[in-house]
């Protein structure tokens, strides 16, 4: 792809993503007065974040992959169960994956 084509794609995709964000802010607030809409919106957030965990932890491209990220995620889960602060959870996960890879795990 030429630099110009890449720039056009960058600007177009950014405009689209911003447009979607702005659309969410322009939705009439009374839609939220319906408990089912609020409940569904909250569940959608849970679903997307959970799916992101799975995709970030266990896939590369279109492949399902089990590598050092999975034990790292396990360590993060234990840290969360022990009510560790967010930053500690993240650092422990990175350190676990980096350590396991230093030992030869993929």
């Amino acid at each position: 792809m030429s630099p110009t084509a890449t720039w056009l794609a960058v600007v177009a995709a950014s405009a689209l993503v911003f447009g979607l964000k702005l659309l969410g802010h322009l939705v009439p607030e009374h839609w939220l007065a319906k408990p089912r809409v609020a409940q569904t919106a909250a569940l959608v957030t849970v679903a997307l974040l959970s799916a992101l965990v799975a995709v970030q932890a266990a896939t590369i491209g279109r492949e399902l992959v089990a590598d050092a990220r999975l034990p790292a995620l396990g360590v993060a889960a234990v840290a969360l169960m022990l009510r560790a602060p967010f930053i500690l959870v993240v650092v422990l996960a990175a350190a676990t994956a980096a350590g396991l890879r230093a030992l030869g795990m993929s």
Partner: peptide
């Protein structure tokens, strides 16, 4: 090598955890 991909997964887990 620095486990940054695992850190990203852990960050999303920490965000969804309270829910």
């Amino acid at each position: 090598r620095y486990g940054l991909d695992a850190a990203a997964a852990a960050a999303f887990l920490a965000l969804v955890w309270p829910r």
